[in-house]
């Protein structure tokens, strides 16, 4: 383990921000100061104070509790999206990169088609066909993320497949599958790591955008994006309603991108 001071400043700031965000998210899974969906008529648009540290929304719901829940939702959706993208992208990239040939040609063409299709647009197609909801958004964003990961993994596999240690493994009779997953894949992890983190950030931003448009997480379930959409109506009287969810999105993304930068620098 390296000493904490030995890491770049960016990395350390990113680690602190991400740590705090993850802590809040975990707390939000088990405990929120108020029920995030409980309405309180007497506290409508209450200003931040001792009882409600971030104030209340137009239904009198505690914004802090909703922010905690919303962060959890955003985090899980982004995570699921990235998992779909990474797993499928790795499989596609590994096989196309390792074997090459017509399989590579065909899958890369498909890849190009999906890549050319903007992720939000794909999500909108999914939503208009299957209806709104977070699972459709996860599926759509996940599919939209496959090509970029596939490209990175494919590039790495092309680099490794002709290396001497792979050739000698092949000569020794190691099966192709074992070469792909045991001999080559671990070597691509460092390259993957920073693109996974960037992908995670894109997923957070995309999810927030979807929910803002009202096609992601559905009310009364909380989401940072949908909170911003509601907050906009009361922007003049209760700017705090917009500020806190927005700030949380920024901090989540900022923390992760600083971490990713730090990893790349090392």
């Amino acid at each position: 383990m390296k000493k904490w001071k030995a890491y770049p400043v960016n990395f350390r700031i990113g680690a602190v921000i991400t740590g705090i965000m993850l802590l809040l998210i975990v707390i939000g899974f088990f405990y929120t100061p108020y029920n995030p969906t409980a309405m309180d008529n007497s506290a409508k648009l209450a200003a931040p104070g001792l009882r409600h540290i971030m104030g209340c929304d137009n239904f009198g719901r505690d914004i802090f509790s909703r922010v905690l829940k919303g962060m959890g939702n955003t985090f899980l959706i982004a995570l699921a999206t990235v998992v779909i993208g990474v797993v499928c992208g790795t499989v596609v990239g590994a096989f196309t990169g390792y074997y090459g040939g017509w399989l590579d040609e065909v899958l890369m063409r498909v890849n190009d088609v999906v890549f050319a299709f903007p992720s939000i647009l794909l999500a909108l197609v999914f939503v208009s066909i299957f209806g709104t909801g977070k699972y459709n958004v996860v599926l759509a964003l996940g599919i939209a993320f496959i090509p970029s990961f596939a490209r990175i993994v494919r590039g790495e596999f092309i680099k490794y497949r002709d290396m001497d240690y792979v050739k000698s493994a092949r000569l020794a009779g190691v099966s192709n599958l074992r070469i792909i997953f045991v001999h080559i894949l671990p070597n691509t992890l460092t390259v993957m790591l920073s693109s996974v983190m960037i992908g995670f950030n894109n997923a957070v931003l995309a999810e927030a955008g979807m929910s803002y448009l009202g096609i992601g997480v559905q009310p009364p379930d909380a989401s940072l994006g949908s909170m911003l959409s509601e907050a906009q109506t009361y922007l003049f009287s209760a700017p705090n309603y917009a500020v806190f969810p927005g700030l949380m999105i920024i901090l989540m993304v900022l923390g992760f991108s600083l971490l990713a930068d730090g990893i790349k620098e090392r």
Binding site: G209, Y212, Q232, L235, A242, G246, I249, I250, V253, L254
Partner: peptide
Amino acid sequence: QIMMSVPHFFMGIVLTYIFGLVLKLFTP
């Protein structure tokens, strides 16, 4: 680095608040 982390729609909301509601440079 901070700007890169701001979603554009939140940026839009912030601009609306500052330049539309407070400074009244445009009608939101």
